[in-house]
Design a protein around this nucleic acid. Structure first.
Length: 957
RNA sequence: GGGUGGUUAGCUCAGUUGGUUUAGAGCGACUGAUUUACACUCAGUAGGUCACAGGUUCGAUUCCUGUACCACCCACCA
């Protein structure tokens, strides 16, 4: 017999092993079944899983288990992400802390540091594997992937080369986002904005002498950058400055720096802000860079870089060289003040760019980097792949070349990819509208190295320490063109294969030192994980060959659903769409399901830096069980909405699991008492074989079960997980336990009982796999295997019985109303009460349920007749029956009267409302027949009750 | 500045094409119960002018407009 309470710790690990050993997680590419694939978003291999991972694992496991049971070839690929910057900085900080080494990069060098990071990652991966198992995730471990696997690296290199050949990847000298803390560029999406309290300084830029009139002042929050100005920008229609436009000035800056600026006119300037004139610093502001690009011809001075990659002022900053930006600003202002040039200082809230990774300010700097061009029309995207019907294609237009941006828009606009919840489509489009070329190179060591090689010999003659530097310098700061092709640079080769020697002269080559943005490789995740690793070693195969020949890719791509948190819609989901449509010609997934972020009880974000706000799944699972945690994160949570998780919630679902456990225990006890082996009971069509033996409750249960199967199946098919979970919860607890099991006591039909429990356990299995698998072992039919492999229940129309449902509802209403009357009139539990029930239509039915009513309402006697007198009687007038409880003189008359009057009043109000409706000619004219009938029925019922209430009131007076 | 979502019971949230809703659930509160599955239980009770103001409609929690407050996303006026 089962223990009294469910103990998750005693079975979860054992059951997981059972599943894993059975091979049931493993998908077969040769299967004739329809494929259903989920790519698990690879957790960063930097440490522990948190609740966010737990949510995704729970959701995806439900999709997968449901699909598997429904006869699909279900594949769920697990894996981890090397998480370039995140991992490198974690390891560097670790080394700094543990080994007291200030500069681990300098100390260990590239090879050794990369080795150390790889070591750390391996450890972390092992932890993650264990944690994913703890959640019950039924993923295919034989296909586990890592973004740095050799086969995935091959894909990265192939895609880079292909994009380069198509002109979609280029090297360009641009103002990029420089993270001075991490010493690398970051992409536009890796920037966060924060409002900081600062000062807005207004100072004299050009003196009255220079302008020949009034002095020209400029307002800025970053005065120190003015050292790099090439221009003053004013609005073309601004009369104050009209006469200065086009003129050139020499400016004496603090620090002994001489600047040369041209006054130019541009519409983007806001005349109302500050003085209406601004300094243009092309190399330290993206906006200024753009303005400078537009007016290059008019401007005489070349831009200067005045802030270095180390965050300190450069040689161009004169005597400020080597100072930090903050100190330089102070000194700069001091000097202006001394010279009387500082006119105003005011408080100012300044939007500051912060690095998403280091949380430190981002410094815009000019740098030679690799970019992906999102606007170049270079890709043929067949229109029919975008989900259009053939009818829409007549006459079939030639497939035009599209830009990556356009393809990204098209696949979502045509709903080839559907996003749940759909409002995120708007967010997605808005992001694409603003999307600029994607900077993909990073100056860190951990990651996929840019597959570009430089020949020392071919590049000879250029200045610089290494060939790379020489080549870089040849491009750098020229800035004539924003796009400098490596192709046009002598001695540079883009190659998906590792190059050791120069293909042209046989000389020594050096690989580009930069690595790729981590999202470059994770953008390939849905398909690079499906490339056959053995084939990927064969360098004679092209990318197209690899796709064509990999059985997994052919069978399992595109994937069915991408389930992830909405906060990485841009970072990752959009990038997968971009990279995958380009590289494979397929969409990466058909559906995107976005879940919300887990918050604390107070609605705050859980943050690692504040452990008290965090709930650790690994602490919850031993205490409450993985099943309870899963339910707590899914039921009551709508896609795309954040949700608050706290202990009581998890405890509530732990209770539910235990309820299910005890219901099963009860069923097994019944079997034991009847000396029946539950495994031998086969009862699917019990009702059809022996209808006479079935009780009302049995018939109702079998009928309700059909509805349940339908609802759960449809709910899961349409990704309505919360609602479906609630449906199951309520069915198990409110219907099955509270009514059916109570009623079945004493006259249980074991085959029906066991059948119902099996069905429930099957339907619940995707949500709470462990407890259901454990229970299945005890109740499964003879010869059955694991629950996770059991086919999904199908409905049997013959078991539907609306009349039984209706009768059952009447029965429960009668019992409830007696209980209510007891409580309402304070009848002591031990007091014997005499009840009579009367019904016009259902007298025989209720009589047949006499024993149940007596037992569940705890009566001493029950009669089926109208009471002779209403003296000492309280009543409930239900639809279809009236219930009278005799209080044997102990009646509280004023209370009874008050209750009746209250009931009368609410009935009156209701009737007035219904009458108003039915008496309204326009309602009768416009409303649907069914609605009118319904209202008429409501009115009839209410009137009947009203008559009874009035009659009773009369008898009291 | 642009956009999105929210505002329903003390708390967390449902409410799927406007009328089967006289607005529901879970938790919490309160009253009672030791009845051979379960106290991780059972029975029952209280608690809501569905943020506010207009509009459309026979009828609005539901659709439209506006307002307020909250949250988030995007942009960044130097």
């Amino acid at each position: 017999m089962l223990p009294k309470a469910y103990d998750p710790t005693s079975c979860e690990d054992r059951i997981y092993k059972l599943w894993e050993d059975s091979g049931a997680f493993k998908a077969d590419p040769k299967s004739s079944k329809e494929a259903f694939t989920v790519s698990m978003p690879p957790p960063n291999a930097t440490g522990q899983l948190h609740l966010g991972h737990a949510v995704m694992l729970a959701l995806q496991d439900i999709f997968i288990r449901f699909s598997r049971a429904r006869g699909k070839e279900a594949l769920w690929i697990p894996g981890t992400d090397h998480a370039a910057i995140a991992t490198e900085s974690v390891v560097i900080r670790k080394i700094q802390k543990e080994e007291k080494i200030k500069d681990p990069r300098g100390h260990y060098g590239r090879t050794e540091l990369v080795r150390r990071i790889a070591e750390f990652v391996a450890q972390s991966q092992a932890t993650i594997r264990g944690q994913v198992r703890k959640m019950g995730a039924s993923c295919d471990w034989s296909r586990e992937r890592y973004t740095m696997d050799a086969s995935l690296n091959r894909c990265v290199n192939e895609v880079f080369q292909k994009m380069y050949a198509d002109g979609l990847i280029y090297r360009g000298n641009r103002v990029v986002n420089w993270d001075t803390a991490l010493q690398t560029t970051i992409s536009d999406d890796e920037i966060e904005y924060e409002d900081r309290e600062g000062l807005l300084y207004t100072f004299e830029y050009l003196s009255a002498e220079q302008t020949g009139g009034e002095a020209l002042c400029v307002a800025t929050s970053r005065p120190e950058t003015k050292l790099g100005d090439t221009a003053i920008i004013v609005h073309p229609d601004d009369e104050r400055y009209e006469h200065l436009i086009g003129r050139h000035f020499e400016v004496a800056w603090p620090g002994g720096v001489t600047g040369h600026v041209t006054v130019i006119a541009d519409h983007t300037v806001d005349r109302e802000f500050g003085t209406g004139a601004i300094g243009c610093t092309p190399f330290h502001s993206k906006i200024d860079y753009e303005i400078w690009q537009r007016h290059k011809e008019e401007i005489i001075a070349e831009p200067k870089q005045i802030i270095g990659e180390d965050g300190l002022m450069t040689e161009n900053a004169g005597s400020f060289a080597g100072l930090s930006v903050e100190i330089c600003r102070q000194k700069f202002i001091e000097e202006l003040r001394e010279n009387g040039r500082l006119k105003k200082e005011e408080k100012y809230t300044q939007p500051l760019s912060i690095s998403y990774r280091s949380k430190k300010p981002v410094e815009p700097l000019p740098k030679l980097q690799w970019f992906i061009d999102v606007n170049k029309k270079a890709v043929v995207w067949p229109i029919h792949r975008a989900g259009l019907r053939p009818a829409d294609l007549s006459p079939r237009p030639a497939d035009p070349k599209m830009s990556l941006k356009e393809i990204m828009q098209q696949v979502v606009r045509t709903h080839a990819i559907r996003i749940i919840p759909d409002r995120f489509e708007r967010t997605y489009f808005q992001w694409i509208d603003h999307l600029q070329d994607w900077c993909i190179s990073r100056q860190i060591w951990w990651g996929h190295r840019v597959p570009v090689y430089y020949c020392v010999k071919c590049a000879a003659g250029m200045s610089g320490q290494s060939s790379y530097e020489r080549l870089a310098m040849s491009d750098e700061l020229k800035a004539q063109s924003s796009k400098l092709k490596a192709e046009g640079v002598p001695g540079a080769f883009v190659s998906s294969q590792s190059l050791n020697v120069c293909p042209e002269c046989g000389g020594k080559v050096e690989q580009d030192p930069d690595t790729l943005d981590t999202w470059f490789s994770s953008g390939l995740w849905t398909w690079s994980t499906l490339i056959d690793p053995a084939m990927a070693q064969d360098m004679s195969l092209s990318l197209e060959d690899l796709l064509k020949l990999s059985p997994d890719f052919q069978k399992f791509h595109p994937t069915a659903v991408m389930e992830t948190a909405y906060d990485i819609l841009f970072f990752w989901v959009a990038r997968m769409i971009l990279m995958t449509t380009y590289a494979t010609g397929q969409i990466p997934f058909k559906t995107v399901y976005l879940h919300g972020l887990v918050r604390t009880r107070e609605g705050k974000k859980m943050s690692k830096s504040d452990p008290s706000t965090c709930i650790d799944p690994l602490e919850i699972i031993p205490q409450y069980g993985a099943d309870a945690l899963r339910l707590a994160m899914i039921v009551g949570q709508m896609p795309g909405n954040d949700f608050q998780l706290y202990m009581e919630k998890i405890g509530g679902y732990r209770n539910f699991i235990n309820k299910l456990w005890n219901a099963s225990r009860f069923v097994l006890l019944q079997c034991e008492n009847a000396k029946a082996d539950p495994k031998k009971l086969q009862a699917t069509s019990y009702k059809l074989q022996a209808p006479a033996e079935l009780s009302l409750a049995d018939k109702a249960l079998l009928s309700e079960l059909q509805k349940l199967i339908t609802d759960v199946t449809e709910g899961l098919e349409t990704y309505r997980l919360s609602e479906t979970g609630e449906r199951l919860y309520s069915f198990v607890w409110d219907f099955f336990c509270d009514w059916y099991l109570e009623l079945s006591k004493g006259e249980a039909h074991l085959p029906v009982l066991v059948h119902a429990l099996r069905t429930i356990v099957q339907l619940l299995h995707p949500y709470c796999p462990f407890v259901t698998e454990e229970l299945w072992e005890a109740i499964k039919p003879e010869g059955a295997g694991l629950l996770m492999l059991e086919p999904w229940p199908v409905i049997d129309e013959r078991l539907r019985d609306p009349i039984a449902e209706e009768h059952f509802a009447l029965l429960t209403n009668v019992i409830t109303s007696i209980r209510q009357l007891r409580a309402e009139y304070g009848i002591a539990p031990e007091a014997k009460i005499v009840v009579s029930i009367f019904s016009d239509d259902h007298q025989p039915l209720l009589e047949s349920q006499k024993e149940h009513i007596i037992r569940l309402a705890r009566l001493s006697s029950l009669a089926f007749e109208k009471p002779k007198s209403s003296k000492g009687i309280v009543s409930a007038f239900l639809k279809g029956a009236e219930v009278h409880v005799s209080l044997e003189g102990a009646i509280d008359l004023p209370k009874l009267k008050a209750n009746l009057l209250e009931e009368k009043l609410s009935l009156k109000q209701f009737l007035d409302r219904v009458d108003a409706k039915l008496g309204n000619a326009k309602f009768m004219e416009h409303a649907q027949h069914s609605v009118i009938e319904l209202e008429q029925q409501k009115r009839k019922d209410a009137e009947e009750r009203m008559a009874k209430v009035e009659e009773r009131l009369k008898s009291l007076s």
